[in-house]
Amino acid sequence: MNIFRILGDVSHLLAIIILLLKIVKSKSCAGISGKSQILFALVFTTRYLDLFTNFISVYNTVMKVVFLVCAYITVYMIYVKFRKTFDSENDSFRLEFLLVPVTGLSFLENHSFTPLEILWTFSIYLESVAILPQLFMISKTGEAETITTHYLFFLGLYRALYIANWVWRYHTENFYDQIAVVSGVVQTIFYCDFFYLYVTKGRQ
């Protein structure tokens, strides 16, 4: 495991914890897209089914469990505990526009046509677009709390670091996973506009 991969995982974890702490401490999920969080819970669920079939390392298992638990706690906070503060009016992205093409594509373009592999592919494609309801919500309301922008910054940083990890792995191990790399690059592009705003607005 290389430094980019570790830092990528750490910033992913940091993003998830920042969001969860923001909700718990402020007792509010205002400005947070519940739909994006449902999609991330679905991403982890469909990707980490290999927890039951394939042991990689203690690190790998622990991180998977932590991501899964955090994702479900976040969804619970938004839709149950702090439901009253949830801005469902502005969380109006149509999920079927993402789920239908992603499902179709995961059946068409995968490494092998087996249930687990199709679900893994589905999770990779879905992750690449899961943040869109959140970005849509921000562009609709025209505002985002600072803490929400920090969350998005660390999520974007995680994606950028994973690309560096893949470049590293390609050169050192001759390893690359085309599905993960293409989706990962697409996903990172979605954050570019946000990164630009994060830097320029941060200066104002």
Partner: peptide
Amino acid sequence: SQKGLKHDEL
């Protein structure tokens, strides 16, 4: 293609 690929990333 990379069949039987082990997904070791998160």
